[in-house]
Design a protein around this nucleic acid. Structure first.
Lengths: 195, 195
DNA sequence: TATTTTACATACGTGCTGTACGTATGATAA
DNA sequence: TTATCATACGTACAGCACGTATGTAAAATA
């Protein structure tokens, strides 16, 4: 019984959804492909047909999560036409996006270890860091920020936010903590400002 | 053939050394306990006698690495008696310590994923973040830095440095890149300064 | 000297991954 | 219309690596 294209895509969609749930809840190492396949009502054979291996499945899920957050950030930035406000909006949106639904586990904990540093780095550069870097670059060209290495600023800010995400998601009063982080981030950004 | 106490400790020492080498070079998942045991001239039985399991061995190695860097940071800070200089020295020492001999793989990549977030966090708080937090706290009490959440500053700075470490260690011209990072860090720190 | 504890080695079971192979069904071309 | 091929799975198997149970010799202890 051959399924038509939409049903095939549905199978893939299903597998990725269940995989995402399990990876976020239990962590990559504590999840078996059998579980995922069962919940998607197929066997591991189907899974291996659509994905190269366990890592491949994780990679697919990882990309989706990163894309989601990336879009969330872009949307938040687009709500203002002031460069500084865009930057700040983007940072805040990133914090929110990464914290919700335990995304941090896939993004920041398992991601680097499972994908390997180089693969992870490429992904992170492509989706997550890129918009930040471009924004900083853009602002530096207009002399809104000091002539400091954009790369260095990007990495330091990105790192600060990632650690902040992990810290925030570990707290019950996430809202308060997030505000504290935003204050710190604003200070940091301010230190780059040309005055 | 029972070994005396020193020889026993030597066995443990040996296992941990080889384990550290393998973990840093290939990553936790790509290392088998058989390899480690063989290189230490014992069987896996000996390994399991001294360590609870693979994770336990990793944890032991992880602690050693963190302790090493922590001491390196403290020593660097102690070279000045000016609070600001101590802070900057500490940051620089941390960058250097984490970059050398691929420590980042154990510390920042595998650490969180293998130990689990909560365990990792406790370790990191205990060894790595603590001196930074205490320094910031100390300086804030003397009104050298603004009344911003010390916790938030600590996490953001720590995150910035960790990401910076990974970025630096990915570059051939580590010295130049490290200097760029230090410039950024100094700006960030400056933004916390009370003026 | 008898007994327990330590420091290993050996042997085995088990879970999970990946792979090879089988099969049914829809698409395609002669 | 039929023969052939590709797709989308399922099934069965192999192997690796972990952990555990058990054995053993030597040192510590009583």
């Amino acid at each position: 019984m051959k399924k038509n294209k939409t049903e095939t895509e549905q199978t893939i969609q299903n597998l990725m959804e269940k995989a995402r749930q399990h990876f976020t809840e239990y962590g990559y190492a504590n999840v078996t492909l059998e579980e995922i396949a069962q919940e998607a009502n197929v066997t591991r054979g189907a899974l291996y047909h659509h994905f190269k291996n366990k890592k491949g499945l994780f990679l697919a899920v990882f990309e989706v999560v990163q894309k989601e957050i990336g879009e969330h950030v872009e949307a938040a930035a687009a709500q203002s036409n002031n460069s500084w406000q865009q930057l700040i909006n983007g940072c805040q949106a990133y914090l929110e996006g990464a914290v919700v639904s335990q995304n941090q586990r896939i993004l920041l904990i398992d991601g680097p270890a499972i994908l390997g540093w180089d693969t992870f780095r490429k992904m992170d550069e492509k989706y997550s860091m890129n918009s930040l870097r471009e924004q900083l670059q853009f602002m530096q060209e207009r002399e809104l920020i000091k002539p400091i290495s954009v790369e260095a600023m990007t990495h330091c800010l990105s790192g600060a936010m990632n650690e902040a995400v992990l810290w925030i998601s570990d707290h019950s009063d996430q809202k308060d903590v997030k505000e504290e982080v935003m204050i710190v981030l604003k200070h940091m950004l301010e230190s780059f400002r040309n005055r």
